[in-house]
């Protein structure tokens, strides 16, 4: 048993120290957003935020998470109350199949938390570890720019600064 802090709540998790975070999020905590894409750190689908930084949850074992704060897409907002990054992706219709999108959104969220006005070049560089097969890239870029604008104008709310609700 170990304690894992996810989206502001503490969970007692029965998992071995070498279990990657991805499976604990999906299997034990029943969270959907972080996706299995490759399990090898090559595609970015499993990205979540740990202590403000985007990490690939498929290669982050539980042993690394003692005392750290994990944020998943579920922790940012809901359909009824979407976070700026979620609103932006909805407004730009930035998905086709959408499987890669949650990972991209978490990477973008982490970027926007440390740099509220990234250039297009910075966004592209940041998203380089992420693959999208449908070819939604143009919209994803637009959505991240829009999220930056939304976060800039949004009230400082838990959703807006990315901490858990």
């Amino acid at each position: 048993m170990m304690t894992l802090k996810v989206n502001g709540r503490e969970h007692q998790v029965d998992a071995e120290a070498d279990t990657p975070l991805l499976y604990v999020l999906r299997d034990d905590l029943k969270l959907n957003a972080a996706k299995y894409g490759c399990g090898l750190g090559q595609c970015g689908s499993c990205t979540v935020i740990v202590d403000g930084k985007a990490v690939l949850s498929c290669v982050v074992p539980m042993v690394l998470l003692e005392g750290k704060q994990v944020t998943t897409l579920e922790g940012l907002g809901t359909i009824a109350e979407p976070a700026p990054i979620q609103r932006a992706f909805m407004e730009e219709q930035a998905a086709q199949c959408g499987y890669c999108i949650p990972g991209m959104m978490m990477r973008a969220q982490a970027l926007l938390q440390k740099n509220s006005k990234p250039t297009d070049e910075q966004i592209r560089a940041e998203l380089e570890p992420h693959l999208c097969r449908c070819g939604t890239h143009m919209r994803i870029l637009r959505a991240v720019h829009r999220a930056a604008r939304l976060m800039d104008t949004a009230d400082v709310s838990p959703a807006a600064n990315g901490s858990a609700r």
Binding site: L40, G41, Q42, K53, V55, V59, L64, P129
Partner: peptide, 8 residues
Amino acid sequence: IMPGFAAS
């Protein structure tokens, strides 16, 4: 490709 672990 090898993922970096600076963030984790």
